[in-house]
Amino acid sequence: MLQKLQMNNIITKKFQQELGRIQCSNNMTKMIHDNKNSSDVRQDHPFSETFPCPQQSRKSIICAENFSLWYGGKQAVNNISMEIETGKVTAIIGPSGCGKSSFLRCINRMNDLIPNTRVSGRLIFEEQNVYDKRIDLVSLRRRIGMVFQRPNPFPKTIFDNVAYGPRLHGIRNKTQLNEIVETCLKSAALWEEVKESLSRSALALSGGQQQRLCIARALATQPDVLLMDEPCSALDPIATGKIEELIVALKEKYTIVIVTHNMQQAARISDQTAFFCLGELIEFAETNKIFTVPSNPQTEAYITGRFG
C-alpha cells in the first residue's frame, strides 16, 4: 500500500513537471511572438543581410557607376554599377561571353591594349576614375595586379620573375630584392617548395607552382587589389585547392576580384558574388545569399544549371 502511495506521489510530481514544461513552452512562444512584433527586432538568420545598393557606400575600394564597354560596335559591358569592398574576395560569375572578364580587365585598363575599345560611365579606384586621362597607367597597374587564366611566367629564373616588377620600379639593392622575393613567395605559399632552387627556370615548375609564382610576381609590386581571371581553370584539383587556400589567406591584406566558371569555387572562397549575363549585372549580393536564396530568377536558373 505504502509503495503504491509513493508511486502515486511520483506520478503526481511527473504530471506537475509536465504541466510546468508546457506552461513554460507556451510562455516562451508568447515572449517570442511579442518580441517579433516589436519594431526593433533583428531577423537573425544567415540570409537576411544583403549587400547594400551602390548608393550606400561602405569601405569600397572599387566602384563602377553606369559603366559600359564596347569592342568596336559590340557592347560587352552594359551599364554596370557595383561596389567592391576592401579586403574582401568578390567573385564574378556568368555564362561565357557575358562580359565578366571584360569588366575585370577594365579595372586596371588591360583592355586599352585592344584596338577600338571605348567606355562610358565611371570606374572609380580609391576616389579616382581609372579612365581619367591624367591617370598614370604604370602606377595603376602596380596597385591593381592581375593573374591570368593560364600561368604565364617569364622565361627567366624563379627569382627574376618575382623581382621583375620591383626592379622595373627602380629597386636595385640585392638585399632588398632578396627580401621582397622571399616575402612574396611565402605569401604565395611557394617558398618552401622553391627556396633551394630560386635560380632554376620558372618554366620548369608545375602548372600549379607556375600559377602561384605568377601570384607572387603580382604581389611583388605591393598592389592593393588582385584581379584574377579564372586562375584555376588550367590546374588540377590539388593545385586548385592550394590556390583557393592562398586566395582566402591573401584577402587579409589584399582586395581580390576573381572571375570564375567554377561556381563551387566562387561559393567556397568569395565573400560577395556578382552574376553577369549578356553584359549586364543581374545580381550582386553576399555569396551566401546568391548560392542559397538568390533574388533574381535568372541567377537561380544559372547557378542551378538550368540556363547558360
Binding site: K4, N8, F15, I22, N26
Partner: peptide, 23 residues
C-alpha cells in the same frame, strides 16, 4: 495541439485517485 495535450494530462490527473492500482 499543446493546449489539447495539457488538457488531456489534466484530465488524467483529475482521475489519478482512481488509478492507485494502475500506475
Amino acid at each position: 495541439v499543446d493546449e489539447a495535450y495539457r488538457d488531456y494530462l489534466q484530465s488524467i490527473f483529475a482521475e489519478a485517485e482512481q488509478f492507485h492500482n494502475h500506475v
